[in-house]
Design a protein around this nucleic acid. Structure first.
Lengths: 239, 239
DNA sequence: CGGCTCCTTACGAAACACGGACGTCGGCGA
DNA sequence: TCGCCGACGTCCGTGTTTCGTAAGGAGCCG
C-alpha cells in the first residue's frame, strides 16, 4: 500500500503554525503520511499554547502570522525550551532569513516550497537535533571513559588531561583489559616501534598512573606483572 | 566546488512518461531544445525501468496511464530515491491534484498545457530541488549560527565577517563537533587537498579563533589537541 | 643476602603550537 | 591603467609541552 519511508517520522511530534488553511492542510497531510504526529495552530498565541501543552519535537513556523510575528513566536518558544524550529519565509526575502537565523531558527524554507522538500528538511533537522546519545565507540571501565574520536578522557566525569602517548596507552589498555602485556608488546602496539629503550614504557606507565590511579603509589587499574609487564585490570577500579 | 552555471537545461536528465505519442513528442522536443537530455517512456513499467537505469534528475509523469496508474508509478519511483516529479493532470480535476501532491509530486500541470509552461515548471522544480540535497540547514552551537546556503554566520546575533576559508572551516567544525581532527584531515576536508603545508591550517585556525573566540588567547570553542590537531567543542561555549 | 626488576626523579633535546610578518595574487575603485 | 586593499599561503623566532633516556633507590624473589 502506501508506504512512507519506514525510518521516517517514527512518531515525532510536529507543530505546524500557519494562518493559511490550505498550506497548513497540505503540509499536515505530508507530515502525517511521513509518520509524524502533527498538531496545527493558526496564529501565534495558539501556537504557544499548543507548544506548551504538547511539547512538540519540532515546529514548522510561518514567518508571516496575523497578530503575533513569527519571530516573536520563535523567540518565546525558545524561552521555554530548546525546540527546533523551521521557518517558512517569502522567497528571496534575505532580511527575513537573517532574522530567522538570529532568532534561533534551525532551518528555513522559502515559499513557494514543495511539501516534499519540507518533509526532507524536517527529517534533517530532527536527525541533527538528537545526536545526543550515540557515543557507542566510547570505551568505559572503572569510572574511566575514553573517546578515541574526540581524543578525550574522563575519570568519574572529570576531564583528564593526557598527553598523546598517555592517551594512546590508556586507550590500548582499555581496549584490551585483563591481559598482561610485555613492555615490548606495548612498545610495538602503542609506539609502533619494534625496538627501543623499554624504560620508555615504564616511565609512561608511571606518568599515566599518576593521572589515572586514585593512589598512584598503590596502583589498582594498571597492575605490574612481575617479570612480564603490565595488565589493565578494570575489576578493581570501582571504588 | 562551485555550482555549474545557472544556465537552463545544462544537461539535466528528464524522463517524460506519457502514453500519447503526440504529447510526448512535443514535450520532448521542447525540453530537448531547452538543453535537457530527454528520455521517454510510454507506460508505467517502462517508466520504472528507465528511471532505474538512467537515474533522471526529474520525471514528467502523466497521471493517466494505461495499465499502471501514474500515482502508483510515482510512489514506486519514490521508493527508489528522491527524484522530483511533475504530474500532468486533467483540467479541474481537483482530486487528482491533491492526490498527486500527496503521493509526492513536486508540481503539477493541468492539461491542456502549453509546452513552454511545462518547461518553466521543469526549470523551477529543478532549481528548487537542487539545494535540497546539496546545501544543508542552519548550524547552530554555542551562540554561533552558520547558514551554509547564505554563507553567513552570526555570533550572539551579531554578524561575523568571515573569509571563504574561515567560513568553510567553521562550517566543517560545526558539522562535526566534539571530534578531534588532524591538520591533514582538515586540509583534505576543508581545502580539498591531499598535500600542502599544514601550517596553512594552523594559521587559518588562528584567524578564525580571532573572530570567533571570546578570548582568542585562551580558546574554548576550537581547542588544540596537542600532537594531533584541533577539536571544536561547543560544550564550553555557552557558559 | 644477592641479583634482578621496577619505581622515581631529573634533565636535555626535540617536537610542537603560536604570533607576527611578508610576498603574491586577484578584485575593485580612482 | 594604476594603485589600494583584502585574502591567502608561507616563513621565521619564540615560548611551551612532551618525550626519551639516564641514574639512583626501592622492591621482589629465590
Amino acid at each position: 500500500m502506501e508506504q512512507p519511508p519506514p525510518d521516517a517520522g517514527s512518531g515525532a511530534r510536529v507543530l505546524v503554525v500557519d494562518d493559511d488553511p490550505t498550506v497548513a492542510e497540505i503540509v499536515t497531510g505530508y507530515l502525517d503520511r511521513a509518520g509524524y504526529v502533527v498538531d496545527r495552530a493558526g496564529d501565534g498565541p495558539d501556537a504557544l499554547a499548543r507548544a506548551a501543552a504538547h511539547r512538540p519535537d519540532l515546529v514548522v513556523l510561518d514567518l508571516m502570522l496575523p497578530g503575533m510575528d513569527g519571530l516573536e513566536v520563535c523567540r518565546r518558544m525558545r524561552g521555554h525550551g530548546p525546540v527546533p524550529v523551521i521557518m517558512l519565509t517569502a522567497r528571496g526575502d534575505e532580511d527575513d532569513r537573517i532574522l530567522g537565523l538570529e532568532v534561533g531558527a534551525d532551518d528555513y524554507v522559502t515559499k513557494p516550497f514543495s511539501p516534499r522538500e519540507l518533509v526532507l528538511r524536517v527529517e534533517s533537522v530532527l536527525r541533527r537535533s538528537r545526536p545526543a546519545p550515540a557515543a557507542s565507540a566510547l570505551l568505559r571501565a572503572a569510572g574511566l571513559a575514553v573517546d578515541p574520536a574526540a581524543r578525550r578522557a574522563t575519570k568519574h566525569g572529570g576531564e583528564l588531561s593526557l598527553t598523546m602517548r598517555e592517551f594512546d596507552l590508556l586507550a590500548f589498555f582499555m581496549r584490551n583489559p585483563g591481559r598482561a602485556y610485555a613492555r615490548e608488546e606495548l612498545m610495538r602496539e602503542v609506539w609502533g616501534w619494534d625496538f627501543g629503550d623499554l624504560s620508555t614504557v615504564t616511565v609512561h606507565v608511571r606518568r599515566l598512573r599518576g593521572k589515572v590511579e586514585d593512589d598512584p603509589a598503590r596502583p589498582r587499574l594498571i597492575q605490574t606483572v612481575w617479570g612480564v609487564g603490565y595488565r589493565f585490570d578494570p575489576a578493581f577500579g570501582e571504588g
